[in-house]
Amino acid sequence: MDYLAATAEKKYLMFISQNYSYAILRPLQREILARGGEVKWFLHGKTVNRDFLDESEQTLDSVDAIHDWQPDVLFAPSNSIPTFIPGVKVGVFHGFDAGKLNSKGQNDHFKVRGCFDLYCTQGPNTTAPFQALAKKHGFFQVKETGWPTLDPFFSEIENNPYKNPDDNRKTLLICSTFSKRLSLAPKLYEQIKAYSEQGKWRILVQFHPKMPSELVERYKALQNDNLTFVETDNVLPLLQAADVMLCDTSSILLMFILQRKPVVTFCNQAPGEHLIDITDVNKLTEAIDYAFTQPAELMAKIEHFCQQLHPYQDGLSSQRVLAASNELLLSNPALKPKPRNFIRNFKMRRKLNYWRW
Rank of each mutant, 00 (worst) to 15 (best):
Q122P: 14
S155V: 03
N160M: 01
E156D: 06
Q122K: 12
P152F: 04
A134G: 13
E156F: 00
T145Y: 01
V142D: 03
S155W: 06
T145C: 10
N164D: 13
L133M: 12
K163C: 14
N125K: 10
D151R: 04
T127S: 11
E156R: 00
K135V: 08
Q141K: 15
K143A: 08
A132R: 14
P161A: 05
E156V: 13
V142H: 07
K143L: 07
P129Q: 05
H137Y: 15
K136C: 02
K163W: 11
N160G: 00
G138H: 10
N164I: 01
W147Y: 10
S155E: 10
T126W: 00
L150E: 06
D151A: 06
Q141S: 11
T127C: 12
N125Q: 15
S155K: 14
P124Y: 06
F130N: 10
T127V: 12
L150R: 02
H137I: 12
F140A: 08
T126K: 12
T126L: 15
Q131T: 11
F153Y: 09
N125M: 15
W147S: 11
V142Y: 01
P129L: 02
P129T: 04
T126V: 14
N159I: 03
Q141R: 14
H137L: 12
T149E: 15
K135M: 00
N164E: 05
N160D: 07
H137D: 08
G123S: 07
K163A: 13
F139G: 05
G146M: 04
G146A: 00
Q122F: 15
S155R: 10
E156P: 00
N159V: 05
E144L: 02
K136P: 07
L133I: 12
V142C: 06
A134M: 07
L150N: 04
H137E: 11
N160A: 00
P161L: 03
G146D: 08
Y162W: 10
Y162V: 06
P148V: 00
F153C: 05
L133N: 12
G146I: 00
N160Q: 00
A128K: 15
T127P: 13
T149W: 14
N125T: 15
V142G: 09
T149N: 08
P152E: 11
V142F: 04
G146Y: 01
P148E: 06
E158A: 13
T126C: 13
